[in-house]
């Protein structure tokens, strides 16, 4: 197997590992959104009858991971290594999922960037042959996030126009070494650098994370000698409307205007009618959009080349109250259509 190449911050796989199987799960609001038909699993009872939102989030993950393993035709003991995380303190939703699954596990905290982070790490391990079946998963749950970061669910308050709605959703992918395996190839990954442009407003995560997205995009384009137009679509995870607008402005200024950009936070919900203010957010948002919307389009050749970024805001309630600004991070994963699949026009 040829060695991967490092170019700047980007790892380019000469024999790309593949995303072999994926699954996504969502809650009630996601079931009312535009991507509903593309989800594997949708649950109208987002508490799963257990009365504890943290446990409910873990159950959502478990159902999603179980579906992903079924689609991959794997038993839990065939998973060599799992990368996962969530937004709960100490990533407990994922820890309890892995208590159930029992596979070797490396826990991640990347806030809303966790899906791309897990996917990138799993791709590296698969490419290097360190894992034949690497699992990457993440989730978020609106209720668990609200009670941890904001206010009680029954508290009557009005959201600001820049606020984003934490998705109740999970996504999971199985990655394997390439070279013959069917699946969506991961051709390169760019791990992001933490960026902080002194945004203090906890209700404007899109603005806090936008510079991280710009930084990672610029590194990726420079490292791979590509331009935005070389991709069929460029996805960012959860910048929302406000952050996306800022991203377009800044990328134009960097001389790399984005004509083909889509934001997961604006795709998961109908931003105009579903009362999500600036859009969706949460680790599960970009994870669900990846597994519901992006990977299937690559697998059947509707898209040939896609850049997928997840962005995360790395503050805590404590640092926010202490007046610290909000650092952001973004990781990028470049995905391609399988070589064997002919190009197909989107219906």
């Amino acid at each position: 197997m040829a060695m991967p190449v490092r170019s700047g911050d980007t790892l380019i796989f000469s024999t790309p590992p593949v995303v072999r199987a994926w699954a996504c799960a969502g809650g009630k609001k996601e079931a009312e959104g535009p991507l509903a038909v593309e989800f594997d699993l949708l649950f109208s009872d987002t508490s799963f009858g257990c009365g504890k939102w943290e446990k409910a989030e873990s159950l959502l993950q478990q159902k999603c991971v179980a579906r992903c393993l079924t689609k991959a035709g794997l038993d839990p003991d065939q998973v060599d290594l799992a990368f996962g995380g969530d937004l709960q303190a100490q990533c407990t939703a994922s820890n309890y999922t892995m208590r159930w699954l029992g596979a070797p596990y490396a826990g991640l905290y990347g806030a809303c960037s966790t899906m791309a982070e897990g996917l990138a790490l799993a791709a590296c391990f698969a490419a290097a042959g360190f894992a034949r079946q690497a699992l990457a998963f993440t989730s978020s749950h609106f209720c668990a996030a609200e009670r941890q970061f904001r206010t009680p669910l029954d508290y009557g308050g009005k959201r600001t126009t820049t606020a984003q709605w934490t998705a109740t959703a999970a996504g999971a992918c199985i990655l394997s070494p390439g070279g013959g395996q069917a699946g969506v190839p991961v051709t390169s990954v760019t791990f992001g650098r933490v960026q902080d442009y002194e945004v203090h407003d906890i209700n404007n995560m899109g603005a806090a994370m936008m510079p991280a997205a710009v930084s990672t995009l610029c590194h990726h384009f420079a490292d791979t000698a590509t331009r935005p137009a070389d991709y069929d679509a460029i996805f960012t995870g959860d910048l929302g409307r406000v952050g996306s607008g800022l991203l377009h402005d800044q990328m134009r200024r960097e001389g790399l205007p984005l004509e083909n950009h889509l934001d997961c936070g604006c795709l998961l919900y109908d931003v105009d009618t579903q009362q999500v203010q600036a859009g969706g957010s949460g680790a599960g948002c970009s994870a669900a959009v990846l597994c519901a919307h992006v990977l299937p389009r690559l697998m059947d050749g509707r898209w040939r080349r896609v850049l997928f970024l997840s962005t995360g805001a790395l503050m805590s309630q404590t640092t926010y109250l202490q007046g610290e600004s909000i650092p952001g991070i973004a990781h990028a994963v470049e995905l391609a259509a399988p070589d064997t699949v002919p190009a197909k026009k989107e219906a």
């Binding site: 820049t162 960026q195 442009y197 002194e198 404007n204 406000v242 607008g245 600036a278």
Partner: peptide, 20 residues
């Protein structure tokens, strides 16, 4: 990146939709 925090704060202010 061609951006400084002061300028960015201004950009953010301009990009923030007004409350109705």
């Amino acid at each position: 990146m061609k951006l400084d925090p002061k300028r960015y704060a201004e950009m953010t202010r301009n990009a923030t939709p007004h409350s109705p």
